[in-house]
Design a protein around this nucleic acid. Structure first.
Lengths: 147, 147
DNA sequence: TTAAACATGTATTTAAAATACATGTTTTTG
DNA sequence: CAAAAACATGTATTTTAAATACATGTTTAA
């Protein structure tokens, strides 16, 4: 049971962007976390498609948060980034061939567990993740004036 | 976010075994669910190592439940079968290289969500999954006298 | 016009899971 | 005692999804 790095990275992009007071770049983020720039680029792109961040091209381009941190729900972000929640075969209706599906109690049990998982995540926003901005800024080595 | 088929299959083995009144075989189970016999064999083996079932070799061998269904906790089974719960990088202490770990709030948020997930699963036992034995027996085509 | 940013489609690599294969052991029955 | 029917176990292969890399394009400001 894992989340994709993609999802993990999306959250880090939001944390990074939300912690900085200025525009940030993909390069900065990938350097900070020792992560493939191309992979982060894709995460950034999807976050911008979903309206969380705004990206501008060109010199002096970069990434800005588009919403207030307290409007960015963590459960929602994870649901959007993680596309596949087929914990057990029957969750994937199209490919399910488990014979007991019509009478299976496991189905709802696992569903209930997954709901509980998201109920917790839904209670948090990006604001909760960056309350300690100063500490984070130090750890991520964010300089407020771009070199 | 998925569970392994391995985990799904372990639960089905328990459901199958718990539903039948007699000894069952790996062959039967893999035929019922259209699943690789070898894969099920490994699941069965681990379930027996963990003491959930008893297997006997040889002619007239097979699988029997070792515990009362209401003593078999679903959360526990899933925890045992699914070995890896590294939802985010920092959960894997040994390989974690995320720089914000010391001050990261996401860590505990995801941890809390995972706990909620298991809290639900911990509330159920195999007995809950087979309350409707008759329906299940029909769907799985279990004959109580072996042909 | 050049440099520095993001965009985007495709290809490759990696890692884990799933499956298959080969051989061995155990037990019962004829 | 031989054969059949079960599980055991180690290894190898295949599959799949995710991660990463590559190549090229577009945008914008200096």
């Amino acid at each position: 049971m894992r989340l994709k790095k993609y999802t993990d990275f999306a959250l880090r992009v939001l944390i990074y962007t939300g912690t900085s007071e200025r525009k940030v770049s993909i390069k900065e983020i990938s350097d900070t976390f020792y992560i493939s720039t191309e992979h982060i680029r894709k995460v950034v792109h999807q976050l911008s498609v979903k309206g969380y961040i705004n990206t501008t091209r060109g010199r002096n381009g970069g990434i800005l948060l588009m919403k207030d941190p307290d409007e960015i729900n963590i459960g929602e972000v994870i649901r959007l980034m993680e596309n596949d929640f087929y914990l057990v075969e029957c969750f994937d209706g199209e490919h399910n061939q488990c014979v007991i599906t019509p009478s299976c109690k496991l189905r709802s049990v696992v569903g209930e567990a997954m709901s509980a998982f998201f109920e917790v995540l839904n209670q948090y926003t990006l604001a909760d993740l960056i309350v300690n901005k100063d500490e984070l800024r130090t750890l991520m080595d964010i300089k407020e004036e771009q070199s």
